[in-house]
């Protein structure tokens, strides 16, 4: 899918040194919330999500002049964000004891940061997502929340479309089962 008019406007502004701050504002207004939510669903903690979003944006602003317009701008940003999330997992595994079971660690963070603010069913739903294997979690988030096509997800993750479909199906069934028992 080609870039949209707003994408083109963001790219032009971000490529010119004098307009780069306007480019930042427009990018954040257009995609900021969506990008933040995607990262937060992957890394859970508020501070961790801000750090990952910061690295994502820094990398995007360094490379935006080389963006080849072969995909939507959001897909390109999502690909950078996904790489940064995976880097975050690797770093945590190196420095944190107990991160070997990353799903459990992420789920504990979810409850620690939410107390009783969010509804129980919402927390159960997101806990079920976090307890998925890493690949299923990635595919589920991209497909269910961000509604990316399998082709776009394939471009980001490097997995085949058939493998992604299988992973999404397993993830969906697993979450459905967990929620059925949770309430």
């Amino acid at each position: 899918m080609a870039v949209t008019d707003i994408d083109e406007q963001i790219i032009q502004l971000c490529s010119r040194e004098v307009d780069v701050d306007k480019g930042f504002d427009l990018l954040m207004k257009t995609y900021g919330q969506r990008l933040y939510q995607s990262i937060r669903r992957m890394v859970v903690g508020a501070q961790d999500a801000e750090d990952v979003l910061q690295e994502t944006l820094i990398n995007a602003f360094r490379a935006i002049g080389d963006f080849r317009r072969e995909s939507r701008l959001y897909t390109w940003l999502y690909a950078i964000a996904t790489r940064e999330c995976l880097r975050f997992y690797r770093q945590k595994k190196l420095v944190l004891k107990g991160f070997d079971d990353e799903g459990q660690w992420l789920a504990r963070t979810l409850y620690a940061e939410n107390d009783l603010k969010a509804e129980t069913i919402l927390l159960k739903f997101h806990e079920a997502i976090l307890l998925l294997p890493e690949k299923q979690r990635l595919v589920f988030n991209m497909r269910y929340f961000d509604e990316l096509s399998y082709e776009e997800i394939s471009g980001i993750t490097g997995s085949s479309v058939s493998s992604l479909k299988t992973n999404y199906h397993y993830a969906f069934e697993r979450i459905k089962k967990q929620l059925r028992h949770a309430v």
């Binding site: 508020a46 603010k117 919402l122 739903f125």
Partner: peptide, 8 residues
Amino acid sequence: YLKQHSPY
């Protein structure tokens, strides 16, 4: 509901 609400 699940798509439009977020604990984050």
